[in-house]
Design a protein around this nucleic acid. Structure first.
Lengths: 152, 152
DNA sequence: GCCTAACTGTTAGGCTTCCTAACTATGAAC
DNA sequence: GTTCATAGTTAGGAAGCCTAACAGTTAGGC
């Protein structure tokens, strides 16, 4: 294989290939979201709340995490609220703010959806070789670093 | 209930991390599409046509490549046609079919948009270390294989 | 204290993309 | 030459995202 450091021409080739991989990942994303129960954004929101059960999370923070504007986050939160999965409470420290918290039902829903989607993904990754899984695992922190650097 | 054995713990962790990485990649995808000129689907369509300049590509094939249903592909093709980037011709062998071909203007547009987005991506990947780029490069074929296996 | 500016979130309206269902037209099988 | 399958378009609607306008709250300057 090619073990020498990537030349500058390789940077462009890598860019092209990464773009292509990202583009085709829609198949993967769609497969995972085929649940029908919760949209990807809704599940992400609930997962966020899972890590902040006590205090809840502010709308703006949810929006930032989802990569959308605040009104779009509000829209999703209202849907989750209507479904009984979250509730909105006034922030004791700042009356402008709203704290979104998970309900018991929401807690169950996120656990269930999360488990199922992980199982689907595990089924897909299970067909890979150990070597391939290692290559994938080694790249995830890199992708994570890229994504963090772009997060506003 | 649990009729099948739980997947290996490492596999589940990888599944979770990969899902997380994919989810956060929306920042990256949005950054690349910030052009405003062409949507991701439209650029993908034009790139497809670039590789089949002579014969054009059928609508169903475009839909499959985009990962959408035929009516959605038709919609995008009509927009591209109205923008003067593609034209639709009857298939000489099958009068039911339509062959979508790139115009000269479309050719220029895809080259330009592609070059620009590759440059944006290269700018992002340029901030990585060689080691990180190598890890990413090693994982792309794996991701590609996963995506291909899911393509209908 | 007050006035202004900044901030948090909601509402309203519109755009894009995707879907399913229904339709037209053509091809293929028998 | 029916009959069934296939290719694509049209119509209508759902979901997600956006910007702009708004109300309420906080914080800083005077």
């Amino acid at each position: 294989m090619n073990d020498q450091p990537l030349p500058d021409a390789g940077l462009l080739a890598l860019s092209r290939d990464f773009r292509e991989a990202l583009r085709h990942s829609i198949y993967l994303v769609r497969r995972l979201d085929a649940d029908g129960e919760l949209s990807a954004a809704q599940l992400s929101t609930l997962k966020m709340l899972l890590d902040a059960v006590d205090d809840g999370v502010r709308v703006g923070e949810i929006a930032r995490n989802l990569g959308v504007k605040v009104p779009s986050a509000t829209e999703q939160i209202i849907k989750l609220e209507r479904a009984g999965l979250v509730r909105r409470e006034a922030d004791p420290d700042d009356s402008r703010a709203v704290r979104v918290k998970l309900t018991g039902e929401g807690h169950a829903a996120v656990e269930s959806a999360n488990t199922r989607r992980n199982a689907v993904m595990a089924g897909i990754l299970g067909s890979l070789s150990d070597r391939e899984r290692q290559a994938l695992a080694a790249a995830l922190p890199v992708i994570g670093r890229i994504n963090e650097s772009l997060q506003p």
